[in-house]
């Protein structure tokens, strides 16, 4: 039997969902607008989409681009951020560049990228990559900068080379911060994924959504929003589990440190 507090905590998101759907249902019934289907109509349309082979291929293509864009971004951004955090020279070189790119909406770059690279996978994956990179670089940079000097000295005294210190001390020490950046990056990957497919409409979940809108299939539009939203929630939940497991050491197991000299 779960203690009441745990039960409440577990049930809260489910209750929030039910509440949201209930408000939707009531609002939709009250407005009686063709472009605003009821929650039940939208949910009924979900199996049709997921059962359709064409739609499924589109959604999987979206997820593939997202995975590649996110994966490559993480693989590039973590080392770059860590190097920037530990080396003034590297930071001085990349900082101005990143400061310029940071506030630019990555979707706004799409027209140029489309012009050069077409409307295919490369363009969309590149936009996802750009969207994910910056928060991951930023958090890796901050994490690496905050690593205690004495910890690195201790490693140096044990005979770790500068490269080994970066890999075996800075990386694990900055991991909690890095994973915070990755979590933000994951949500941004989903956002840029859908955005890129809305701009370069050729395939993907965003494409299904906008095609349905063009054809006035409003239940499909809302069903796609639910599907994409659910994807985001699931990916985030899975990531959070992985994160919590990887940085268990940074959370105290007990509320109070043990008293023992």
């Amino acid at each position: 039997m779960m203690p009441p507090a745990t039960l409440t905590r577990r049930a809260a998101p489910v209750l929030a969902c039910i509440g949201l759907l209930a408000v939707w249902q009531v609002a939709s019934l009250a407005l009686k607008n063709d472009s605003f289907p009821t929650a039940i109509e939208a949910i009924r349309a979900i199996p049709d989409i997921l059962g359709d082979k064409e739609s499924l291929i589109n959604i999987l293509a979206s997820l593939r681009r997202m995975a590649i864009g996110f994966g490559v971004a993480v693989l590039v951004s973590i080392p770059l951020g860590l190097l920037m955090g530990r080396s003034r020279g590297v930071a001085a070189f990349f900082n101005p560049l990143l400061m310029v790119i940071y506030p630019v909406p990555k979707a706004a770059l799409m027209p140029i990228i489309m012009l050069w690279l077409g409307v295919g996978d490369i363009t969309k994956t590149l936009v996802i990559f750009l969207g994910v990179s910056l928060p991951v670089i930023y958090h890796s940079f901050e994490g690496a900068k905050a690593v205690e000097e004495k910890m690195l000295w201790s490693g140096a005294a044990m005979g770790l080379s500068p490269a080994q210190r970066l890999l075996r001390i800075v990386l694990p020490a900055a991991l909690p911060e890095i994973l915070t950046g990755c979590r933000t990056g994951l949500v941004l990957a989903l956002i840029t994924m859908i955005t890129s497919e809305m701009i370069a409409r050729q395939s993907g979940a965003g494409n299904i959504l906008f095609n349905a809108l063009d054809m006035g299939q409003y239940d499909t539009v809302f069903a796609m929003i639910i599907i994409v939203g659910a994807m985001g929630i699931c990916l985030d939940a899975i990531f959070e589990r992985v994160r919590a497991r990887l940085v268990r050491w940074s959370e105290p197991q007990f509320d109070m440190p043990l008293s023992f000299s």
Partner: peptide, 9 residues
Amino acid sequence: YPKELSGGM
């Protein structure tokens, strides 16, 4: 883990 220890430990 170190977090679970007092300063002396």
